[in-house]
């Protein structure tokens, strides 16, 4: 049982100091997600908090997933942006 950070992470550091198990670290390797949750240390905050702290503060929808790959914050759940508008934006957004 462990959470995972995927490549949509923007590297904002918000989760890192909150982890009760110090399981989160910055990666700094090109091509990998910016942060990493050590799977053996992650307890999903059981025993420490009601809810996993990293997912509670994470501002990016879909960036933290559970062991089944399900996002803890699914699309639209944090910004309130309707899904069809999110889809449209993804198509048109400018990539650098």
């Amino acid at each position: 049982m462990a959470l995972e950070i995927v490549d949509s992470c923007v590297g904002c550091f918000a989760c890192e100091p909150l982890c009760p198990n110090k399981a989160i670290s910055a990666v700094m390797r090109p091509g990998e997600p910016l942060f990493f949750i050590h799977p053996e240390r992650c307890t999903e905050c059981l025993g420490d908090h009601d809810l996993p702290q990293c997912a509670e503060i994470c501002p990016i929808e879909g960036a933290i997933v559970d062991e089944f790959g399900e996002p803890l914050n699914p699309p639209g759940s944090l910004t309130g942006i309707p899904l069809h508008l999110l889809d449209q934006f993804r198509v048109t957004e400018c990539r650098q």
Binding site: V10, A14, I57, P59, L78, T79
Partner: peptide, 17 residues
């Protein structure tokens, strides 16, 4: 970089130079 709130005029994802 970290924030403790979300504002409707902010998008945490992007950085355009």
């Amino acid at each position: 970089p970290a924030c403790n709130i979300q504002c409707n005029y902010c998008n945490r994802k992007y950085d355009c130079s």
